[in-house]
Design a protein around this nucleic acid. Structure first.
Length: 627
DNA sequence: ATAGGGTTAG
């Protein structure tokens, strides 16, 4: 092997050309990656450089991401060519977009006197891929106005920019374009189209497009699968995955990541483990995205040690890896670990915390008994220490932090001084604090504001009524109940489930479909009597229906989490822990019930709420009775 | 010369 000195001369020229007799000297230099010398050669040749040679040099600049060299080629072209061909300009656009110089790319496009579908699409794609959705859409419209006919590439890329309500409006119009040109069955366009529908929440339309595809591949299958998973149709996602696999789909790491999202939602630990071992068997473990979703899956199944093991084994971590792990600790009320990991993240200083990180850290501090630390971090954020300014949600966390440490008045002041108008979530958090710290005056204000914003949410009435009941204001309890009757819309019925031998058993207050339902009810009645003997008092203020006390007890006994707990007791071996998941917030009475349950039977109960975990051991809950 | 699916939070 012979190495050449940096400068070029006639001798090398003939030698290099002899290596590849059909190509020019410039092309040969490029194919050897010797870009600097190619530029020198270009300068020497001046006007004699041919268009295809510029093309080759620019191509090499793209693959080396050589910004300055590419800019020099651009300057050279401008100086020496009278009428450069279209494809050369387009190559320049591609070069600039690949180097993240979008403004320069756009300038080239704007200055072109003649554009074709490729030059437009290259620019639209650059905007889309970087999330500049409105620029992408505007450019697409400009393209249509100019009379250029979009092709399958254009449709596939522009549809990824159709996000949110306006995106749906435009996306639907694009869909009709696509239909007219008969591109709906094109696999790239079709996947993009169905993904668009899924992302704006139109899962039926998405499924329709998917079912009409004449052929499918992993990408289109993963798109529809992740659509179901992201919209929370977890069972449907799982079922679809099984069907597609039977039909011959070969999943890849993206497919598994999406599937794991559904399994996280279901807290289906056994299935999650199966997916994990399959990815190991297929040697897929080093994809960060996949590891991130494994961390999340284990954490949402209550297995934080498994999550941490994956986290620690990672060679490369993104901000999502850190967030997933911190969120895990946060939801388990492990404040010390939250702060420890956050400090470690800043110390390592490889990835910067973002808005999600702070959300997890602040709420983790709040739920994990680290209120002062949380307030300190919020103040540091405000001072600009992290380069991320607090947003609305972070202000909400502060209300929670203050409320939890009993500083309800301060929390109220804080809300009044915020640069935002308080949301329902913020008033809700203040109301929660008032319930725990029995502050009726502020609680009343918070409750009324909350009912103004969210009159349809039944949970709000329950908490306010709990508060009135706790100080014996029965008249107000009654008023609230009357008020509720007119306004409440039942959005989501409460349901709980438990995984036994890879099967999810779901319970629902009014549903009689579980095969062992009667057995469960008998067991539950037995527990009710037994627990009352050791001090359990049903908290009737958790029932807002206007019925007599005996009826109220019956209603409480029928709550789905109690059914799932009783089923767990029947079906699992003595002393083993029980994992129950509930789709809504757990009520005070069920919480008490679970605490006594854990004490009487010596079982660890892990109860996953809509927002967090309650790990109950020997009658004591990790949430500290504040949630 | 231009194209589709992904992980955290809410």
């Amino acid at each position: 092997m012979r190495y050449f000195p940096l400068s070029t001369n006639q001798h090398q020229r003939s030698f290099l050309s002899s290596l590849a007799p059909n190509s020019t000297f410039l092309k040969t230099l490029c194919s050897n990656g010797r870009l600097k010398e190619a530029l020198l050669e270009m300068a020497v040749q001046g006007l004699q450089v041919e268009f295809q040679e510029y093309d080759t040099v620019l191509n090499e600049c793209v693959s080396q991401r050589a910004v300055r060299e590419g800019q020099r080629v651009h300057a050279h072209i401008t100086k020496t060519c009278y009428h450069p061909p279209l494809y050369l300009w387009t190559r320049l656009i591609v070069f600039y977009t690949k180097c993240d110089f979008l403004a320069d790319a756009r300038k080239v496009l704007d200055e072109m006197t003649l554009r074709n579908v490729v030059s437009w699409t290259a620019m639209i794609s650059a905007y889309s891929q970087r999330g500049h959705t409105s620029e992408a859409l505007n450019l697409f419209i400009q393209m249509l106005r100019s009379g250029t006919e979009p092709n399958e590439f254009t449709f596939a890329t522009v549809l990824t920019s159709c996000i949110g309500p306006e995106g749906f409006y435009l996306g639907r119009q694009i869909h009709s374009f696509v239909l007219k040109r008969n591109f709906e069955s094109h696999i790239f366009v079709g996947s993009s189209l169905l993904d668009m529908y899924a992302k704006v929440g139109r899962i039926h339309e998405a499924r329709g497009v998917f079912e009409c595809l004449p052929e499918r591949d992993v990408v289109s299958c993963t798109a529809i699968l992740s659509g179901y998973a992201q919209l929370g149709f977890d069972e449907e996602a799982l079922e679809l995955f099984r069907r597609l696999q039977n039909e011959g789909m070969v999943p890849n790491y993206v497919t598994y990541a999406s599937l794991l999202t559904a399994l996280s939602g279901l807290a289906a630990l056994d299935l999650g483990k199966q997916v994990h071992s399959r990815t190991l068997r297929f040697k897929l473990p080093s994809y960060v995205v996949l590891q991130n979703s494994l961390i999340d899956m284990y954490s949402k199944c209550g297995k934080l040690t498994y999550s941490r093991r994956i986290f620690d084994s990672m060679i490369e971590r993104t901000v999502i890896s850190w967030n997933a792990m911190i969120v895990g600790y946060s939801k388990h009320g492990m404040g010390r670990e939250v702060v420890e990991l956050f400090d470690f993240m800043n110390l390592e200083n490889k990835v910067k915390p973002n808005s999600v990180t702070f959300l997890a850290v602040l709420s983790g501090c709040s739920h994990g008994g680290m209120e002062d630390k949380g307030l300190e971090i919020f103040n540091e954020m405000t001072e600009g220490k992290y380069g991320t300014k607090p947003e609305m949600v972070h202000y909400g966390c502060v209300v929670d932090l203050l409320g939890r440490s009993g500083r309800v008045d301060e929390a109220f002041d804080f809300i009044n001084k915020m640069p935002f108008k308080a949301t329902a979530a913020i008033w809700g958090s203040l109301l929660g604090a008032c319930r725990v710290h029995s502050n009726v005056d502020i609680g009343e204000v918070a409750g009324k504001r909350l009912l103004e914003i969210e009159p349809e949410n039944a949970g709000n009435y329950v908490i306010l009524s709990n508060l009135y009941a706790s100080v014996g204001r029965w008249e107000d309890v009654r008023t609230i109940r009357e008020f509720m009757k007119e306004k409440v819309v039942v959005k989501e019925p409460g349901r709980s489930w438990i995984e036994i031998d890879q099967i999810l058993h779901t319970f629902h207050a009014s549903d009689r479909s579980h095969p062992r339902r009667e057995e469960v009810r008998t067991k539950l009645k037995e527990l009710f009597v037994k627990f009352k003997e050791v001090g359990y008092v049903p908290d009737l203020s958790c029932v807002l229906f206007d019925v007599d006390e005996e009826q109220k007890e019956k209603i409480l006994l029928n709550h789905s989490e109690k059914l799932a707990l009783a089923f767990g007791l029947i079906t699992t071996s003595e002393g083993s822990s029980i994992r129950v998941i509930k789709n809504l917030r757990i009520c005070v009475d069920c919480h008490n019930f679970a605490k006594i349950f854990s004490k009487v039977y010596g079982r660890e109960v892990s109860l996953r709420d809509k927002t967090r975990f309650h790990r109950i051991v020997d009658g004591i809950c990790s949430c500290g009775d504040y949630w």
